[in-house]
Design a protein around this nucleic acid. Structure first.
Lengths: 212, 212
DNA sequence: TTTTAATGGTGACTTAGGTCACATCAACAC
DNA sequence: GTGTTGATGTGACCTAAGTCACCATTAAAA
């Protein structure tokens, strides 16, 4: 009842051409991270390119004085954009990646990158598309921080959670939100309370119901 | 005495393989923008991939309410990362690009991208490297806005100017700086004054001498 | 059941940065 | 010279957000 590499590839990357699927099935290996485990830390070297096939991970930036700042999630079918670029150049990671649930990834040896890129058009499209979406996501992140107040950013954050998790019942603490937004718990609590008073959500312990 | 396309390519992209250089020389066209002219605006379609060969352009993000936020410069030898991604997908630009000096660019029809990417290894490396550095630059930008105060960001901005322009004499107004940092003129003036008092720079009209 | 630790609420205070209203001041046209 | 224009200086004030101190509630561990 365990999913094989081929099955993962067929389900999550149907657009890959048959020869590419077969090649990946041969050279890729699976690796599993427990919920909460760090998948990548700043300064670490990439040994392989990573495709998420199960679970969910969050990518965030860490400031010098220990602050954190959430960038985006990686979900099944996503590649870690940085592992695509940095792997080929023996660069180190610029971000932290943490498994939010038990997460399984497909690891492709970095030596394969050149070959894949040159010989498999669907791979090359996949890589470009990955960059494009991540770049765009970073731009949105920048917009948020530069042009919007914390209230709007919080709203955006919650909407995003709802969209990604497909449930209005979010199991999350105020502290977690504060950390992701690089703010402080009290401020987030106050803003949430205001939103509750406006009828936009309902607050319980460890739990927020999004009503919009 | 006009520089030819071949000369530009040889000078600025020596790493390209001979066949690639020759191909580009055949298909690329030159376009010139006057200082101050907009090269790309948010929402516009990409008709070609753009390589800068002369001059200097700045890329910035525009907020909904008209705010601006500087991202990075494009200089001779650089490609516009977005034109590399978006061109292939018929996407529209997410950023504004403005020529700071008279700027000449090499335009490569987007139809070529697939071919270039698949058949010219040095092109493919160039594209990846472009992404990598721009992605990194965006990460730095994010760090600045989230983890640092305006004083540090201003310092970083000036250092950057100095490095890029290779002169400590910066012809720039307080207003321009404020716009780039999405701040206000008064605040920048005050911070500059403090830096002057600390002996880090000297202020004149339309002109800042960076002493560090 | 008692203890402990995590979570959330709240008021008081501080601070960075934005805004407003003017006052200067240098440069250049005339 | 004189006037005009854009660049800069400055004080008063406002606001979002961070910080601190402390308490109440709940859940989980012992």
């Amino acid at each position: 009842m365990q999913t094989t590499i081929s099955q993962y590839i067929n389900n999550l990357f149907p657009q890959f051409e048959p020869a590419l699927k077969q090649l990946l099935a041969e050279v890729a290996t699976l690796k599993t991270f427990a919920a909460g485990e760090m998948m990548m830390e700043t300064g670490q070297y990439f040994k392989s390119t990573v495709l998420i096939v199960e679970g969910r991970a969050k990518l965030y930036r860490q400031g010098e004085e220990g602050g954190e700042f959430f960038m985006y999630y990686l979900e099944p079918g996503n590649a870690c954009a940085l592992s695509l670029i940095c792997a080929t150049k023996q660069e180190t990671s610029e971000v932290m990646a943490k498994a939010l649930e038990d997460t399984t990834v497909l690891m492709i040896p970095i030596g394969m990158m050149d070959d894949l890129m040159k010989n498999y058009k669907t791979w090359y499209y996949f890589v470009l598309e990955t960059y494009r979406t991540r770049f765009q996501e970073l731009l949105e992140v920048i917009d948020g921080v530069t042009f919007k107040g914390l209230d709007e950013r919080l709203m955006f954050y919650l909407t995003n959670q709802y969209k990604k998790l497909k449930t209005r019942q979010l199991s999350i603490t105020h502290q977690e939100i504060a950390t992701d937004l690089n703010s402080s718990r009290e401020v987030i609590s106050r803003l949430l309370k205001k939103m509750e008073q406006r009828g936009e959500l309902s607050l319980q312990r460890n739990y927020i119901e999004w009503l919009k």
